[in-house]
């Protein structure tokens, strides 16, 4: 018995060490960014950030980078632009994917498996490969109808939503497959419509999957440069501004570091806000 306890303890120690090591390795770039953000242009250019950590007193520290970020250009405007891109580009695919996954899981219709296979197969299409056809298509729509989706937010929303959908549908359907069919049957007996079952049963029970996908999608859109650059060029987003901060000769990277840290705040807030929804066992106790 003692041996077993000892072994469990060893295992825990090993796990902890491993985790600390991994967290340490993964944190290195972020630490580098943080240190650099507080350095002056000259010291950032003359020595590495790790040298600054080991000899902190011989360094020049300053908040100049943060000052630059907050005062130069229209950083706040870009911040708002990024939000305007990111929020609908997160909500839209989740809404559509939830409806689709619900149908794929619970409603019997002809060709269901084939449609699902096609949707999943679409995951392999790289976004970059589709850019030119999509832009041409949107331009054709503009010429035909006068509705402009390029150079505006809706274009970016559509693009982000469309390319998020296959994965979102896949994840949500796989999750919904695990929901207790017995409960849904009981609800139908009590007179619930498909629509009510979706909103009152399936959505509340799918919150963990919805939240995790929301985090992924929001992070991806928030950090995206390519789609924002192509579709919303008139309203520069954060990533665009960050690139500008680097300067023509790449000598502004302490500014980029500071800007990145400011940009990091929102994803962090989103992560911690949604993390509490990863509640396991929400459905525990409904069916034996």
């Amino acid at each position: 018995m003692k041996k077993v306890i000892q072994r469990v303890r060893d295992f825990k120690l090993g796990t902890t060490l491993m985790l600390v090591l991994l967290v340490g390795i993964w944190s290195i770039p972020t630490i580098g960014l943080l240190v650099t953000a507080f350095r002056t242009k000259d010291s950032a250019a003359s020595s590495g950030w790790w040298e600054a950590i080991f000899a902190p007193l011989e360094q020049e520290w300053s908040l100049a980078a943060f000052e630059t970020v907050l005062t130069r250009d229209d950083m706040f405007g870009s911040f708002v632009n990024t939000l305007v891109v990111a929020v609908p580009a997160t909500v839209l695919p989740i809404m559509i994917a939830a409806f689709a996954a619900y149908a794929f899981t619970f409603i019997e219709f002809r060709g269901r498996e084939i449609y699902f296979a096609v949707v999943v197969a679409l995951m392999v299409v790289p976004l970059q490969a589709a850019l030119v056809p999509v832009v041409r298509g949107l331009r054709a729509i503009k010429e035909a109808t006068g509705i402009s989706l390029i150079g505006s937010f809706p274009g970016a929303w559509l693009m982000h939503a469309a390319f998020a959908l296959p994965l979102a549908i896949y994840i949500l359907r796989n999750y919904m497959m695990t929901l207790p069919m017995a409960l849904i049957e009981a609800a139908r007996i009590d007179g619930a419509s498909w629509y009510q079952i979706f909103w009152k049963l399936v959505m509340p029970m799918s919150v963990p999957a919805l939240a995790s996908f929301a985090i992924f999608q929001f992070l991806w859109v928030w950090n995206d440069y390519l789609i924002a650059f192509i579709f919303v060029d008139s309203k520069p987003v954060m990533t665009y501004r960050l690139l500008r901060l680097l300067g023509q000769y790449g000598d502004g990277w302490q500014d980029v570091a500071a800007g990145s840290f400011i940009s990091l705040i929102v994803p962090l807030v989103v992560f911690f806000a949604l993390q509490r929804f990863f509640v396991r066992g929400l459905t525990a106790g409904s069916v034996k």
């Binding site: 017995a182 409960l183 009981a186 409904s286 069916v287 034996k288």
Partner: peptide, 18 residues
Amino acid sequence: GIDTRCGVVFQEPRLFPW
């Protein structure tokens, strides 16, 4: 289809957990 004239009590409780 599912018939609203019927009420069913299942083998398991099937209560909504929330």
